[in-house]
Every structure is written in C-alpha cells, then in structure tokens.
C-alpha cells in the first residue's frame, strides 16, 4: 500500500479504477452463460477492487465496490439488485482485507480473490434469505461457491499479474 502519494493522484487513479470497474461489471452482465445460475457471475470487476485495496487500502476498496454496484444498478435499471450486491461487497472487501493482513506473505491475490468471492456469495444469499424470509436459500450457497471459487481464482491471478507489472506512482 502506498501512503506517500499525493491526494490528487489517489483521487484520479481511484476515479479511473471506478470507471474501469463499472464498465467491466456492465460488460460481464451481458455474458449470457451465467444466466443459468442466478447470482453467479465472472466477477472480473473484482480485479479493480483488489487493485484499489493493495494500492490505497481497504476504505478505497470498500467505497469503490459500493459506488460500482450503485452505478451498475442505476445503469441496468435493477436498483433492488443493488442491495444484494452491496451486502456482498461490504462482506467480501472486509474478509479480503482481514486475510490480507493476517497472512501477509503467505497468501497471494489468488487466495484472497477466492475468499472474497465466497464471502460475496454469503452476503448475497443472506440478503436474499432475509428478503424472502426463507433460510432454504442457503442451500444454494455450495452451488454458487463451486462456480465462484474457480472464477475467483482466475480473477485473482489477473489482479496479481497486473499489480506486479504496474506499480502505482512509478
């Protein structure tokens, strides 16, 4: 994490990351394959959130995630879906930051990303279960986890490669 960057630079890079994340999020919603499993997605936009986390820290990552789901919610018109994504985002960013702090050099972004994807699903399903008052929703968690672990691994590797090639402020 870089603390020595000027605030303006942080702000502009953050804005760029937010724009990139929104577009990625919007594009992946167009991939029809993932319509078979409601709620499942590639999560490629999480690359951007993870970059914000290692570059600027957890608060930037959290606000990036929340702003991103808000923007995508407004763009796609599914504003109610914002709540599901929002709960998932808060939980997953929190978990990713915790594991990054706990196992600093024992874990790579691939592992962080898989855990983030898992906790995103937990948040998503918890909100869904609360909305319909039905704990049966959690039966769906293992199915989502199976898919999200694989996609989380892939996006984690992407994020890791980017963060190694491109250091902020150099």
């Amino acid at each position: 994490m870089r603390t020595d960057l000027p605030k303006t630079k942080k702000l502009t890079v953050f804005a760029m990351l937010l724009a990139t994340g929104t577009v990625l999020n919007y594009l992946e919603a167009m991939i029809p394959v993932f319509n078979i499993l409601p709620g499942a997605k590639l999560g490629i936009a999480n690359v951007v959130t993870m970059l914000a986390m290692v570059w600027f820290g957890p608060f930037y990552a959290l606000s990036l995630g929340i702003l991103r789901s808000a923007l995508v919610g407004l763009m796609s018109g599914a504003v109610t879906m914002l709540i599901y994504g929002g709960a998932g985002t808060v939980l997953s960013v929190g978990a990713m930051w915790m594991f990054l702090k706990l196992f600093k050099d024992k874990i790579t972004m691939a592992g962080i990303s898989m855990l983030g994807a898992f906790f995103f699903n937990v948040g998503q399903i918890a909100v869904a279960a609360a909305v319909i008052h039905n704990m049966q929703m959690f039966r769906y968690l293992p199915v989502l986890t199976l898919v999200s672990t694989v996609s989380g691994l892939l996006t984690g590797i992407v994020a890791k490669r980017i963060s190694e090639k491109q250091m902020m402020g150099e």
């Binding site: 290692v54 196992f103 050099d105 024992k106 874990i107 790579t108 972004m109 691939a110 592992g111 898989m114 590797i157 890791k160 490669r161 963060s163 190694e164």
Partner: peptide, 11 residues
C-alpha cells in the same frame, strides 16, 4: 506479495 504465478500453500 509472493513473486510469480506460483500459488502458496495457503492459496
């Protein structure tokens, strides 16, 4: 972060 594409044991 550990270098390269290699995953750690924890991963």
């Amino acid at each position: 972060q550990p270098a390269g594409d290699a995953m750690t044991r924890l991963d």
